[in-house]
Simulated assay, not measured.
Amino acid sequence: MTDHDHRTEKLTDALRQAGVRITRQRAALLSVLADAEDHPEATELHRRAEEVVPGISLSTVYRTLTELEMQGVILRHQFEGTPARFEHTETHHHDHMIDVETGEVVEFANERIERLQAEIADAMGYEIVHHRLELYVRKKASPAPQG
């Protein structure tokens, strides 16, 4: 079974357990969501699903995303100043850098940051249960040529 098939099955099962009927339009949305390696907004997911099966309504996309989030199989990211973005939970732990000029979301993982966070929590008498790290960034200006 491919990663895509596994993710699609997990998303489909979550909706069925919630009592949601899997229509052709919802199946297309679930397939698009399973394929997404970026962090698409609901309107982008709608556009992608519409290419596969015309006729899906934006309200169906929003209702389906809300149910999938409630079932714990997708994550909603609300980065500052942007519409909500979504990703499936079948990913490794990662943090995000958000380019404040372009809105691009870049995933990254850094073991030093993870260790430091754990050390800080431990020093204060805590253990980390869950965390999210978001860095808001902009590209550095290129240095002026020396002449």
Rank of each mutant, 00 (worst) to 15 (best):
M1I: 14
M1V: 14
D3G: 10
D3W: 15
H4L: 15
D5Y: 14
R7F: 10
T8E: 01
K10M: 13
L11M: 08
D13L: 12
R16L: 12
Q17M: 07
G19K: 04
V20P: 03
V20Y: 05
R21A: 13
I22A: 04
R26C: 04
L30T: 09
L33M: 08
A36G: 05
A36T: 03
D38I: 11
T43V: 12
T43Y: 14
T43G: 07
H46K: 04
R48D: 02
A49R: 06
A49Q: 06
E51T: 03
S59Y: 14
S59Q: 11
T60F: 08
V61I: 06
V61K: 08
T64F: 01
T66H: 12
E67A: 00
I74V: 06
R76N: 05
R76F: 08
H77F: 11
Q78I: 02
F79S: 01
G81V: 08
P83F: 01
P83E: 00
A84L: 10
H88K: 04
H88F: 04
T89P: 09
H92M: 07
D95G: 02
H96A: 00
D99E: 09
T102Y: 11
T102K: 10
E104I: 08
E104Q: 13
E104M: 10
V106N: 15
E107K: 13
E107A: 03
F108R: 15
F108A: 08
A109Y: 15
R112D: 05
R112P: 00
I113T: 12
I113V: 07
E114C: 00
L116W: 14
Q117P: 04
A118M: 02
E119I: 03
D122A: 03
M124Y: 15
G125W: 15
Y126W: 09
Y126P: 05
I128R: 14
V129L: 12
V129I: 03
V129D: 15
H131Q: 14
R132I: 00
E134V: 00
L135M: 12
Y136H: 11
K139C: 06
A141I: 01
A144N: 14
A144M: 11
A144S: 14
A144H: 13
G147Y: 08
